[in-house]
């Protein structure tokens, strides 16, 4: 058992690319679900259209990087309106059904053979991150403390990622302290009451959907740039469910909960995964466990851990127990 290696990868995971991407996606979900009560089960689609919007613009049409970002942002807003206009007037469940279906439609269009000349089919698109890494201020080398260090490319993407997370958290903090955030939270509690007080509920729900989608789409850009590649299956429905898990783990409707939740989620996954694979190769586990099935076992164990956490701390890490008690009344 190489505990040293396990420890290093685990610590790196807590601030790594996955944590950054999932934290941004979860901040978006937290705005929509945590504050406004919107069940958007298609967050993966928002990241997908943003990532593909950028990648396709640059790789397929050979247009500038910043135009790609602009198109990615625009595609996210368009998607939010497409999903929101027909469903936000209806009960919350309809948004959940429509968004989960839309996310699958988006993914299947990206991987379809018909459009493979544009989206690249199941291989996706590569060769679009050159301009982004050309802006890298870090000279080649490794950066970090001792063994916990990254090369200049990863350092650059993580820098951008954590700056974006800080900005988004600041934005959420300001908004949710304001009367705008108050309306959002009130809509989560009872939208008819909010209507009876003269607020345009539809407009606020749309604003929340667009804002949550835009924050999430930043994660989509980073995901694509960090891997220097987009593939349709990165944006499957599990992605959205992980983002929800992260929000609930951290505690819904708290500013930092998606960030801490994402870090814990990935630390758990990486730690359990690496420990298992080390144990298997050291022959410490029964023959039932093999290198091929520990991936699945890892998710089972993490799932069990999350269940225990929610049983013993249902409000999440940052949640307020009094709020959960209110639901039981």
């Amino acid at each position: 058992m190489d505990w040293n290696a396990i420890l290093i990868t685990t610590v790196k995971a807590s601030i790594g690319l996955e944590t950054v991407v999932y934290a941004l996606a979860a901040i978006g979900v937290n705005i929509q679900f945590g504050y406004a009560g919107l069940l958007n089960f298609g967050q993966a689609a928002f990241l997908g259209v943003a990532a593909y919007g950028m990648a396709v613009t640059v790789a397929t049409f050979h247009l500038p990087f910043w135009l790609g970002i602009a198109i990615g942002l625009a595609a996210t807003v368009v998607l939010a309106f497409l999903l929101g206009i027909p469903t936000l007037r209806l009960r919350a469940d309809y948004l959940a059904i429509v968004t989960i279906a839309a996310a699958e439609i988006v993914r299947l269009v990206f991987r379809s053979v018909k459009f493979s000349s544009v989206f690249g089919g199941s291989d996706g698109r590569q060769n679009f991150s050159g301009d982004f890494f050309a802006m890298n201020p870090y000279s080649p080398g490794t950066y970090g403390i001792g063994p916990i260090s990254f090369n200049e490319r990863v350092t650059w993407i993580l820098t951008v990622g954590w700056v974006l997370i800080a900005i988004c958290c600041g934005l959420v903090y300001l908004l949710m302290k304001s009367p705008w955030g108050r309306v959002l939270k009130a809509i989560r509690e009872d939208e008819d009451a909010v209507r009876s007080l003269g607020k345009n509920v539809f407009s606020y729900k749309m604003q929340a959907l667009v804002l949550g989608g835009l924050v999430g789409c930043l994660g989509g850009f980073l995901f694509a740039l960090g891997q220097a590649s987009v593939q349709p299956d990165l944006f499957s429905t599990e992605f959205t469910f992980y983002a929800y898990t992260i929000v609930i783990l951290g505690g819904a409707a708290r500013v930092f909960s998606p960030v801490v939740g994402a870090a814990i989620f990935w630390v758990l996954l990486v730690f359990v995964g690496n420990t298992l694979s080390e144990a298997v190769s050291a022959g410490m586990l029964p023959s039932l466990f093999t290198v091929n099935n520990i991936g699945a076992v890892r998710f089972m164990l993490v799932g069990l851990g999350l269940m225990l956490l929610l049983i013993f701390r249902p409000q999440g890490i940052f949640g307020d127990k009094r709020e959960i008690a209110l639901d039981a009344r």
Binding site: R182, K185, A186, E189, D190, A193, L197, K199
Partner: peptide, 26 residues
Amino acid sequence: LSKLTVMENMRLGAQNQRGENFFRAL
């Protein structure tokens, strides 16, 4: 509105609030 305080419930009722606009809220 259960998870809002009594005071927040009251404030919500006021009309023409500047802070209820997204950009001014910031």
